[in-house]
Computed example of a mutant assay.
Amino acid sequence: MKKKTQLIHGGIVGDKHTGAVTVPVYQVSTYKQDGVGNFAYEYSRTGNPTREALESLIADLEGGHAGFAFGSGMAAISAVMSLFKSGDHIILTDDVYGGTYRLMSKVLNRSNIEVTFVDTSNVEEVKNAIQENTVAIYVETPTNPLLKVTDLKEISAISKENELLFIVDNTFSTPYWQNPIELGADIILHSATKYLGGHSDVVAGLVVVNSQNLAEEVHFIQNSVGGILGPHDSWLLMRGIKTLGLRMEQTEKTTKKIVEFLLSRDDIETVYYPGIENHPGHHTHLKQATGFGGMISFDVGSGERAEKVLKETKFFTLAESLGAVESLISLPAKMTHASIPRKRRIELGITDGLIRASVGIEDADDLINDLKQALDHK
């Protein structure tokens, strides 16, 4: 199937019991057994038909062996991190989502799991960070919020050479634009709250693995820890995924126009978008993805000016999150990445004047005019 068809017909389709064309919401906690141990489903923490349909769908879309749905993106990441033990070492993208940084630096350290943050777009930095106790390499590409691009095939080769797990957060690109398992990833993560849900009405996380062995391990953790996604949220997520292709394509068309507008202004210091030819990761992204997405970051020079711009926008809503039908705008230094110490943020390039915009599906001219009036406001 082509990707747009797979969004509709992938995974488990309909309901064999009633003929319903969409999978129903099985709002149930437990199931009748036909004799001890004779059952299709035992308990909804362990398995639920609605969640199972979503998990099957995301596995199909990512070309993986199995999928797993969790109550949030952070719950999904935490489950994957539960694969590791005290004394293990993980290499992680330096320009990473603030919540991921917080988990790695302030929670996993309690379990004596070591983390080294490096620029994973630099292969030599990754190689140099490998230690005797290194067990995994974890990348975001494009990153949040500077949209740096990591060469997935190169990192996959390093991982295999050193017998490391290769984990990719694919939230920004989605399986519509990028399929990391095809490029050598072992595990894919999604904050499904974002583009996959797409309507700011569900919080969810997804994991896809490339092998039966990993599937058994992640399912054991999912069932043991219990951070599952509920059936109604699973249903909402499947509904959102059906229009993912249409939304991603429209969003990208609009984003390119907004990027052109931002580049035309002398009062914007830097524009970060992998679709720009001189973006450091442009050519790498072209090799491994079929689209550039709807995320832009741009530096307006100071935190004071950035806050003024965010206060004046009308169609760009000042809010956390991204990937929704409505355009969202935020200040990473004080919002999504506030948990990262300021000195470290500045080292990474996450300045006080950096604005992150998630472009929705509104009319491009309206969004450009909105940014123009906010940037021009004195």
Rank of each mutant, 00 (worst) to 15 (best):
S44Q: 09
M81Y: 14
T5L: 10
P180K: 09
E362F: 11
I221Y: 07
L244Y: 07
T120K: 06
S200P: 01
V168M: 04
V25E: 14
I187C: 00
F70K: 09
T243K: 14
G230P: 01
E125H: 12
G63H: 10
F261T: 08
L375F: 06
N179V: 13
G303N: 14
V25N: 13
K343V: 10
L318D: 03
A40S: 12
A338S: 13
K16W: 12
L354H: 09
I158H: 08
G230R: 05
Q33N: 08
L244F: 07
R102G: 04
V208K: 03
E217T: 10
R356M: 13
V168G: 02
N369P: 03
K127R: 14
F316P: 04
E114R: 12
A374G: 12
R265P: 07
D95N: 15
T143I: 04
L147H: 01
T243A: 12
V203S: 09
S105Q: 11
S234I: 02
T46D: 00
V218C: 01
D233K: 11
V118C: 08
T143Q: 01
L147G: 00
D169C: 02
H337A: 08
V300H: 10
M81W: 07
L367D: 03
G198Y: 08
L263K: 15
V13N: 11
T290I: 13
G275Y: 11
N162H: 15
G99W: 06
L348F: 02
A66W: 03
H89S: 09
Y273E: 08
K378Y: 06
E347G: 11
T251I: 15
G98L: 07
T174W: 04
I113G: 03
H232F: 13
K257Q: 15
S211C: 07
T174E: 02
T243P: 01
E216R: 12
K127W: 09
N210F: 03
N128G: 05
G230W: 01
G281L: 07
S82N: 13
V225C: 01
V28I: 11
P231A: 10
I296L: 00
T93K: 05
D60Y: 07
R345Y: 07
V123I: 15
Y195M: 03
G64W: 12
G227R: 03
Q222D: 05
D365L: 13
V168W: 00
S321L: 10
